[in-house]
Design a protein around this nucleic acid. Structure first.
Lengths: 147, 147
DNA sequence: TTTTCTGCAAATCCTTTGCATATCC
DNA sequence: GGATATGCAAAGGATTTGCAGAAAA
């Protein structure tokens, strides 16, 4: 549960970040953000739309799409797996890790012994059967970093 | 570059796995698999289709979709980020990690100090600007593991 | 008043499905 | 010969886009 003061703080941060990026405060944006903060299930656009729609029957689905995308752009929220992109496949079924460029979407394999030997935390073992550990480094590849 | 003998070995493994899962060997499947093994770019369905199409002009796009999906099911290849699923968002922008259930698609946050303190490998630093490290444990959640 | 956002509708992209025919074992 | 795979066409789901009117700064 989030305390009232924490919620208030989140809300001011949100307003500050919007201001910084010249985003106007609209009731749609506020409602969507509030609904997001409550969510513990890493919801998709449709999920958020359904929840927001109860309080705000006139909101349209594409506003939710646009808003979530904008929020992610300015770092108010994050996108998680999946990325809404097309499926991609890897013929290398051995242990390895990925660099993922956020700009050009390239994925490059790399090896690292520390990452290979990560142990599953005890606390996780009790509630989850882990098949595999993925380590993904997200950022910019050499070419994209130049620009 | 993959040596001829390594390529031959991959091919026998491939045939063995197909046999085990009662998959027939068709020229489409062989061609798709060969094209995949050569790929270093974690291609999508459309990519594979274009490459295969040059050698095999009669192949259809949906065969490629079906085949790649089948290959992933039997573990001949792996799906990587993205998963072809809808976008999902996380209001928690702080450091944390994810458990991802492969069956029900739930994503649950967890904390772990070891994972929090992973260092970016030196070899990576030279060729990549890392924004964030993601650790994702994939497997089955408690409910799905029961079945 | 100017810039930005929203809702609507249409378009686009990715993926799956049903079915008849062709192919593999 | 029997089971399975393929190609075609159509459907389905997710996401984006253009545009005119509405709302925020």
């Amino acid at each position: 549960m989030i305390s009232n003061s924490a919620q208030f703080e989140l809300m001011s941060e949100f307003r500050a970040k919007c201001k910084k990026h010249n985003l106007k405060m609209t009731p749609q944006r506020v409602t969507i953000y509030q609904e997001l903060v409550k969510a513990k299930d890493h919801p998709g656009c449709e999920d958020i739309f359904e929840r927001v729609h109860k309080k705000f029957p006139d909101i349209s689905l594409d506003t939710v799409y646009r808003t979530l995308s904008t929020f992610a752009d300015i770092g108010v929220i994050n996108q998680v797996e999946g990325y809404g992109e097309a499926k991609r496949y890897d013929p290398n079924t051995g242990r390895h890790h990925h660099l993922r460029c956020l700009k050009c979407n390239s994925i490059v394999d790399f090896q690292d012994t520390t990452f290979n030997n990560l142990r599953i935390p005890k606390s996780v073992e009790k509630s989850f059967v882990v098949n595999n550990i993925k380590v993904i480094l997200e950022g910019l590849c050499k070419e994209c970093a130049k620009k």
